[in-house]
Design a protein around this nucleic acid. Structure first.
Lengths: 237, 237
DNA sequence: AAGCCCCCCATCATTTTCGGGGAGTTGCTT
DNA sequence: AAGCAACTCCCCGAAAATGATGGGGGGCTT
């Protein structure tokens, strides 16, 4: 497997379009002998795109019904770090209806294993393998491939980020230490008076820093300035 | 290496304390034949802890001087998804003084390779290997071990999350879709009137959502609520 | 030495937000 | 059928933030 694995990773890294990634993913699916491989990403502007082997009908249905809101896989991945076996999720209520009533018919496997992936600026993605199999079989399969799947997930996401994302993230804005201080205090929930006090400067001075930080960050108001600073990692809460 | 790798991963998974992780990490360092292995985590409440092989003096110095603010490794990792070779970072200005003037003396290797890791709730961590070596040697070493390092990073972080506190992850704050909407608008820099307008709800309704989101997030004011939501990845800007 | 950025301080009128109340509908879950 | 969470709408006075202006001193870089 090891040789094959690095082969797939090379292939991933040579892909220059999402279609290219799709081909690699299909190759991977066939190699693993399973039914579905899905890579699904939500980027920082809230736009999402996916590279998958589901039927277009099911994808349309999923989007139209806004199943993302009730999908236990998505919810589960979002709050976990380690990959998650679908069997361990909570499939009650609406989720059950979605799964038993529609997803299975649409060709989604009864078993699944999803790797959560997080990138800079709040990017979130999932790399999923799905199949029709018995619990024990699936347990064995996933157990043997955890490491490989984590690596695939990483490299697919890395490539997808390179393909999709403009590298305007590199235009790092720099704030002065004091500007970072004031934004940090605000992000911690202090009001101007408290914050200025705890930095031992006048409220007016405090305001000056907020203004200049706001200007540098191209923000309309304090809240946006704080949000941007937090999102860019300039301010750690 | 493959056999060794899974051995280390098993060892990681058997660790029950951060000290246990430390032992595994030292074993890993010796096995790789390098000088330092560092795992450093920051969660969304700003608490940080580390498992590392640096001298306590250097760690104290780093914390006391708040070097996290100017450390290009931290900054660079926060903006990237893929592991980063220290050589590719911007080591000018204060960072240079820190590195040449103190870090090297403190035993930090001249070469380094850091894997960024992101978990739920805005958790952020780095897994770093550092060594004294020439560029070509280091290039070769890291090239050969990228995949392994990514995997180590993953499993160390997974274990550290389990050890440090699975409890606060369970009380994962979940915001309703509308609450996320209002915070998103605010994070984008609109004021209440504009935001309410663009969501096609009354300003007062808008306020109600902000209030309930603020309550759920345990925030003192709107700015903090937005900052927390952004930091935890609930709101994408 | 000039220019630039960082650090600090101030006023006033205007706009925006906050905090404290209260009320009604839908829709899912149990 | 009841409960609960989410969604929608409203008032008002007090408190806070903003915008538009000023000012001065210190330190690094060119």
């Amino acid at each position: 497997m090891q040789a094959k694995l690095s082969g797939f990773i090379s292939a991933i890294q040579q892909a220059t379009t999402l279609d290219g990634l799709q081909s690699v993913i299909i190759g991977l699916r066939d190699h693993l002998g399973i039914e579905h491989v899905i890579y699904h990403s939500v980027n920082s502007t809230g736009q999402q795109y996916a590279v998958l082997t589901y039927s277009p009908e099911w994808v349309d249905r999923y989007l139209a019904e806004d199943y993302a809101r009730i999908d236990p896989v998505l919810q589960g991945c979002f709050r976990r770090f380690h990959p998650v076996n679908w069997k361990t999720l909570d499939w009650s209520g609406r989720a059950q209806r979605m799964f038993l009533g529609e997803a299975l018919d649409a060709g989604v496997g009864n078993q699944g294993y999803s790797v959560p992936i997080r990138g800079p600026n709040g990017q979130f993605a999932m790399f999923t393998v799905s199949h029709r199999a018995r619990d024990a079989t699936w347990e064995k399969f996933t157990g043997e491939h955890v490491a490989d799947l984590i690596l695939f997930a990483h490299f697919v996401n890395q490539r997808a980020l390179e393909i999709e994302g403009g590298h305007d993230l590199n235009v790092m804005r720099s704030l002065s230490p004091r500007e970072i201080d004031v934004l940090t205090m605000l992000a911690m929930g202090l009001n101007r008076a408290q914050a200025a006090d705890s930095l031992a400067i006048s409220e007016h001075t405090f305001r000056t820093y907020v203004e200049s930080a706001r200007f540098k960050l191209g923000a309309n108001n304090t809240t946006q300035a704080v949000a941007r600073a937090v999102a860019e990692g300039l301010v750690l809460i």
